[in-house]
Design a protein around this nucleic acid. Structure first.
Length: 279
DNA sequence: GGAAGATGACAAG
DNA sequence: TTGTCCTCTTCCC
């Protein structure tokens, strides 16, 4: 589901299924009907993802911009399209496969200029080549907001959601409530490298697994990673009240800027501010 | 049958 | 910070 890895994987799948083909475009639910009529029967040139945004390009420089939001899903199916189930806002189809979009925050027809404006607003995306993590560091290192909030801010870094936020902070022993301007550059460089690795793995597997082999519980040894509601084996995300896989302290949760935050109070020690950072 | 909650983002105040 | 939107699933009565 929708963190950056989901969108990049989706773009890849849409390319292999529909890239270069003429597609039937419809909006069974009706909310995208006018645009669907315009695109119906035209060639789908390709799809690409930037952060949590998905762009699908059709002939005549027409682009569909999709943002799944919290609850959206874009699912591909093999076989000829059947009757729509539920609220299908957008359906792409060929005689042998189809894809249904439901619950998206955004599904709109845009121009290449609008696409550029959308992508220009975002911070660097760990899943794209040639990104500059220093652009994110420039904002983090100047901000008194918590690192937990900064990592979720798409203007700072693109593609990170609640799961990767919780997990990468755990893996680096950083309290999510710590202000961005108290972090060291070395810590950000290490976190960025970790995000690149974790999220790339997420694109391949379609799930979020962050637990190192040595921290897997003994009963899990020799078994494939467990699958939680969110699909993946993690250290702290949605594990409030359970034992930390590393130190057995109870994982805590708290709402930060409207989102559930999870962390281990022992592994992710609270930063103690002695004096204002000097540089 | 209805409420709550979920991997998100925006506008209003 | 709060409210709102999107849809579906799970839980509780």
């Amino acid at each position: 589901m929708p963190e950056g890895h989901t969108l990049h994987r989706l773009a890849r799948d849409l390319n292999s299924t529909f890239g270069g083909r003429r597609v039937q475009v419809s909006s069974p639910q009706g909310r995208f009907a006018d645009a669907a009529d315009l695109l119906h029967g035209t060639r789908l040139l390709g799809a690409d993802a930037v952060g949590k945004h998905l762009f699908i390009e059709f002939d005549s420089a027409r682009l569909v911009h999709v943002h799944l939001g919290l609850i959206g899903a874009f699912i591909l199916y093999d076989g000829p399209p059947g009757l729509p189930v539920g609220q299908v806002r957008l359906r792409l189809a060929t005689p042998v496969s189809y894809a249904d979009l439901r619950g998206a925050l955004t599904c709109e027809l845009i121009t290449p200029e609008q696409r550029d404006a959308i992508t220009a607003k975002g911070g660097p995306d760990p899943l794209l080549q040639d990104q500059d993590p220093d652009r994110a560091w420039a904002r983090i290192s100047r901000s008194a907001r918590t690192i937990g909030a900064l990592l979720m801010d798409q203007h700072v870094v693109s593609g990170i959601g609640n799961v990767y936020r919780a997990e990468v902070l755990f893996r680096h022993g950083i309290d999510p409530r710590r202000p961005g301007n108290t972090l060291r550059r070395k810590q950000w460089v290490a976190m960025w490298a970790d995000l690149v690795g974790l999220m790339s793995q997420g694109v391949e597997s379609g799930r979020i697994d962050t637990v190192r082999p040595e921290h897997r519980p003994p009963e899990a040894m020799g078994r494939p990673p467990r699958v939680d509601d969110h699909g993946g084996e993690v250290y702290v995300y949605r594990r409030a009240g359970q034992d930390c896989l590393v130190c057995r302290t109870r994982v805590r949760t708290e709402v930060l800027e409207g989102r559930n935050l999870f962390w281990c109070p022992a592994c992710q020690r609270r930063f103690r501010s002695r004096a204002r950072p000097t540089s």
